[in-house]
């Protein structure tokens, strides 16, 4: 039998590929699809609603009011002297973005089994597009935060004297990238682990809710004085990010390059592991999902 020229094959389908065989070139080739998914996610979200994107504002407003009543009023948790609306809103903006990205990407395989079962495209496109489309919501909520901030500044409302915005605020884009990276990493890892056994997905909801309390969203890190608790808190990769944002924006909180560096390293390792596992699972998950 004559041997065909092996170099001619452009597609080779085989049972297993190398562990680290992740096709980034292919991912780039499908970038148009990614942007279309982003557009679809955004435009279809508020079809046939009256208030439309206003919902992005109503939700954090209600949450802030609730926090002000429960945590600020009843529980009397310190806000480092900052005005409560600004303090809570800054935390909510970041946390909400992380929360949305994580919960949405963690169901990538199960929620898209219909499409994935019929056509091939790099599966990673879906979680990436989720993380990008959630940026819109984040931007709108950040806008709300800036408006409240401006109101405090212009009218010099009570508590504004404690706000000291500084140059660290320029780190914001990096902080958002880190949040997105962490959410994506955890999300795809979770999604890969739940294709066959769904037990973990029942846990996620609960886990994310607890996680918020382990992140300085509704309280400043400075109120944690217990050394052991502090150690646990600083192991949470979100702690450094949230604190850095509050420090830059409002001038209160603890900024440390060490904590931020830890979060960054955590994100890089997590994303690496997540991508490798996701890539492995995507090849046969249709048989078990």
């Amino acid at each position: 039998m004559d041997k065909p020229n092996n170099q001619d094959w452009t597609t080779v389908i085989q049972p297993r590929e190398g562990l680290l065989h992740v096709d980034f070139k292919e991912l780039w080739r499908y970038r148009d699809l990614c942007m279309l998914f982003v557009r679809r996610n955004i435009t279809t979200q508020f079809k046939q609603t009256i208030l439309g994107p206003l919902w992005y504002l109503i939700q954090p407003t209600m949450t802030v009011i609730m926090y002000m009543v429960v945590f600020g009023g009843i529980a009397q948790i310190s806000t480092d002297g900052l005005p409560q609306p600004l303090f809570y809103l800054s935390g909510i903006c970041l946390w909400q973005y992380f929360n949305d990205c994580l919960t949405k990407t963690s169901s990538t395989f199960t929620a898209n089994a219909g499409i994935f079962g019929k056509v091939y495209f790099p599966r990673m496109i879906v979680p990436i597009s989720t993380v990008i489309s959630n940026l819109l919501r984040f931007a709108i909520q950040l806008g709300l935060f800036l408006i409240v901030y401006a109101v405090y500044m212009i009218f010099g409302l009570q508590g504004y004297e404690h706000v000291h915005t500084n140059w660290y605020v320029m780190l914001l884009p990096l902080l958002v990238v880190m949040l997105a990276g962490l959410a994506l990493g955890f999300g795809i890892l979770f999604s890969s682990m739940t294709t066959k056994y769904r037990d973990m997905s029942l846990l996620l909801d609960y886990f994310v809710r607890l996680w918020m309390y382990a992140t300085p969203v509704i309280y400043p890190l400075s109120t944690i004085t217990n050394a052991k608790l502090r150690l646990v808190m600083s192991l949470n990769p979100l702690t450094g990010i949230v604190e850095a944002f509050k420090y830059g924006m409002l001038g209160a909180g603890e900024f440390s390059w060490w904590m931020l560096g830890y979060s960054f390293a955590f994100m890089v390792v997590l994303l690496g592991v997540g991508v490798v596992i996701f890539n492995r699972v995507q090849r046969t998950f249709m048989d078990t999902v």
Partner: peptide, 13 residues
């Protein structure tokens, strides 16, 4: 490429 084979290879141009 929706699912991978258990054994064997497919080559295509």
């Amino acid at each position: 490429k929706v699912t991978a084979p258990t054994t064997g290879t497919i080559r295509a141009k």
